[in-house]
Design a protein around this nucleic acid. Structure first.
Lengths: 337, 337
DNA sequence: GTGAAAGCGCTAACAC
DNA sequence: GTGTTAGCGCTTTCAC
């Protein structure tokens, strides 16, 4: 395995000079640098990251902690982090909780994250209070993407506004009887996004002085399956049923769409359906939604982290991401309107 | 920052003993071990991975090279790798190509992958011939998941069989005029999966002595959007149109479903649709498909890698993963049958 | 602009 | 069962 001193010897310089030359530091004459780069090249020299990590204390690696990796938001976000990172020669170390929420014994202070990364990007997830504390205890740039976490900087859309605006869209179309399908707001866990969206729904409904039928409030877990299941329960409601259903995610809304079709419920004639997210499937299915871009949110978060690492103190801060109501074919005025 | 000798001093032993105790190596008396673990605990000691990487030459990190991270197969697979890895204290370093295929200047021999990982898991993707060569040149356990790559061990389903069996399912139902929607088989790139699936389609059709209308062969890129687009072109075919369409992925099949609905084409009455993959959306939509499980395929691949690293030579080998035809509501005998 | 040498914090012989 | 010590391969003062 060719090391730095092999290069040094071959180029007739010291290891210190090789080190500087390779890393593009100043104080190396152009001629020397060129020669070193050339010898390094044909010796096939690749610096040992382990050695330089040890010497510098920097890992040039960012950790990404994600509750899931095979769900829309998270996949998109991870792609964003990766883009930003690899452009700059950083590595991405992925920690996937795989939906596990129980035995994450002190995740953050443990070897897992500690000393293996220079900064941490947390993807919106449920956190136990003590986990949040651990999070704050690690001395490392930290940002969360996709939802607020107490005491942390985060980048993401205004979820309240998102839920509110799709509900208002429905109301604006003339719907007076609206069903809600939201994510479960397990109180024990600080997964605030579902809760915030629920508030947006509720406030929009109440502001319009409409009644909210408690039987028409369904809970899902942001998956298609839970959308299907919710629609099944929807069909058990006595007629007249709500003329619209507002879902807290596109995936759930798609489930609703699929199950509606199965029951011969026409969308939007019999039922208007809206989601939140901007999932590609939703676009193809003609789903009205509030669009957001997890990839660029994650890029933004990563940029902040990198800037902070680079010494720009205060680079990490909360930022609200763009969102946009996209009206497609799944919404229309109610039949009787 | 508390280091190994702080622990050694506090526990009144040598660093060597601390090292053994922490890593659970033998030759440490239970009493000593307990005391060391305790002091380490309350000193908040976390070993420096950089130092131990340097000393051992092992990174305890597996690299995952993926063309995409926000697509079904890849997200599922990454989740699988992660499960297997974190259970055993390994790290997952993610390299996402983000669909980029052009400027991947000698990916594998570069610092990117080199010396940063102990093994590489490659997720099924297009590879330039020289990239395959570079791949073989790196001296590191390697396995590919999700599709064959020349000269590499791989785990994945039999794509030929998958395509063949969904096509035969259609034929068995009585369809005589079948459209095909396959992934593009860019000849320049060794992304063999699309090609293999195409062959499966074709052979099944020919074996049944049916004609294949070249105009009824569409190409997509495995996305929903391309399914929508293909269905649009399908509708431009002169009647009588094919009574079924076999798609090389569920995502494309879903696109077909969405667009069919838009044109008032009833599935399966007017058109039977099949996919390949076992996407959750497909399940909810009632799509007939050949199911596969990328997560367990990736776990399997990871296990092999880990075994190989562990000294079990020959642990990495090719393996065929399970697949299963799942008949749902999107297929039925043709109307005229 | 370049070199010598002292670490960085562990691990792995080897000795006891 | 435990301690000593020499590295692992870089980076980084500090001289020159």
């Amino acid at each position: 395995m060719v090391g730095i001193d092999d290069v040094a010897a071959a180029a007739g310089v010291s290891t210190a000079t090789v080190s500087r030359a390779i890393r593009g530091l100043p104080r190396v004459s152009p001629a020397t640098r060129a020669k070193i780069l050339a010898t390094a090249e044909d010796l096939g020299y690749v610096p040992s990251s382990a050695a330089s990590r040890l010497a510098t204390g920097k890992t040039r690696t960012i950790g990404v902690l994600a509750p899931y990796v095979d769900r829309w938001f998270f996949g998109k976000a991870i792609a964003g982090v990766d883009q930003e990172l690899h452009e700059r020669g950083y590595n991405l170390s992925l920690f996937n909780l795989g939906g596990r929420i129980t035995p994450r014994e002190r995740l953050f202070s443990r070897s897992m994250v500690h000393k293996q990364i220079d900064a941490l990007l947390l993807l919106c997830m449920f956190l136990h209070p003590e986990e949040i504390d651990d999070l704050h205890a690690i001395d490392m740039p930290l940002v969360v993407v996709g939802g607020p976490v107490r005491g942390c900087s985060s980048v993401g859309i205004d979820d309240y506004l998102a839920a509110r605006s799709i509900t208002q869209h429905l109301i604006g179309l003339g719907h007076r009887h609206i069903a809600l399908l939201h994510g479960s707001g397990d109180a024990e866990l600080n997964f605030s996004v579902p809760k915030i969206r629920v508030e947006g729904f509720h406030d929009a409904v109440h502001d319009a002085e409409l009644e909210l039928n408690p039987d028409a409030e369904f809970f899902g877990n942001f998956t298609v399956e839970s959308g299907v299941e919710a629609m099944r329960r929807f069909m058990e409601l006595p007629e007249p049923r709500p003329t619209a259903i507002a879902c807290a995610s596109d995936e759930m809304a798609l489930g609703v769409l699929f199950e509606a079709r199965r029951h011969g419920v026409r969308v939007p004639e019999d039922l208007s359906v809206v989601g939140i997210d901007g999932h590609e499937m939703g676009a193809s299915a003609g789903l009205t939604t509030v669009w957001q871009d997890p990839t660029s949110q994650a890029r933004r978060g990563t940029q902040m982290l990198l800037a902070e690492i680079g010494g720009e103190i205060g680079a990490v801060h909360s930022e609200t991401a763009v969102q946009r109501l996209i009206v497609r074919e799944s919404t229309a005025p109610p039949a009787a309107f």
